[in-house]
């Protein structure tokens, strides 16, 4: 096969270079290092077997994340749960209320603290699946809305609404954590740090 070598060279330069990022994504899906390593291997084997279908010049990282996610759900024999699209107006109001509570309590000043960084990671992991996925893709892995929509197989509007809600939920949880841990003090009117989702 005279085309085998060039294809493999392309796989080397375009796919394997994303292994560390795919590994972080896999770990965020599985929550377990050993399972994540298995998932990464499965992802790259699948990608290699389908490499002839990959369109050179398209976004390989998003393609790998898509495979990784599909393999994860295939192994777990479940589909990502769908959630209702939120009302943008209500979500915007809720986000504003959360911002005011966080600002009054001085939450932004606590973002630099290591224990808060740890709490942020834990808070992301505690989100329900649809919200966790989109926060991981956009906020932790720096994907665009378009790429996240491609990976998740949902419309861009769904990415946007889930992302905005995920961020508000994270801020509420961080506010609650920071107050409970004594990192910041609640002020009057700082009662919206709920755990709802």
């Amino acid at each position: 096969m005279t085309t085998a070598t060039p294809n493999d060279a392309d796989f080397e330069s375009q796919a394997l270079c994303h292994l560390p990022e795919v590994a972080r994504f896999a770990r965020s899906l599985t929550g377990d290092d050993a399972d994540a390593d298995d998932l990464v291997q499965d992802t790259f084997l699948t990608a290699y077997r389908q490499w002839h279908q990959f369109e050179l010049g398209s976004e390989c990282r998003a393609w790998l994340f898509t495979i990784c996610r599909h393999r994860f759900y295939r192994v777990h024999e479940r589909a990502a749960r769908q959630v209702a699209v939120e009302d943008p107006e209500l979500e915007s109001l809720a986000a504003m209320a959360t911002f005011h509570s966080a600002q009054e309590a001085g939450l932004s000043a606590a973002f630099e603290r290591q224990e808060v960084r740890e709490a942020i990671f834990d808070a992301v992991q505690s989100l329900s699946e649809p919200y966790r996925e989109v926060a991981q893709l956009v906020d932790l892995h720096n994907h665009t809305y378009d790429a996240a929509a491609l990976i998740l197989g949902v419309p861009i509007g769904t990415v946007r609404s889930r992302l905005f809600r995920a961020r508000r939920l994270l801020q509420e949880r961080l506010l609650t954590h920071a107050i409970d841990a004594g990192i910041i003090s609640p002020t009057s009117g700082t009662q919206s740090g709920g755990m709802s989702q």
Binding site: A23, R24, A26, R27, D33, A36, D37, F99, A102, Q103, L107, S108, F111, E112, V116, R117, E118, I120, F121, V124, A135, D139, L140, N142, R167, L170, Q171
Partner: peptide, 16 residues
């Protein structure tokens, strides 16, 4: 505030 939150979120990744 939201920009500092985004930066904190980005910095909160853990290596496996």
């Amino acid at each position: 505030f939201e920009r500092s939150f985004k930066e904190a979120l980005r910095a909160a990744q853990r290596e496996g």
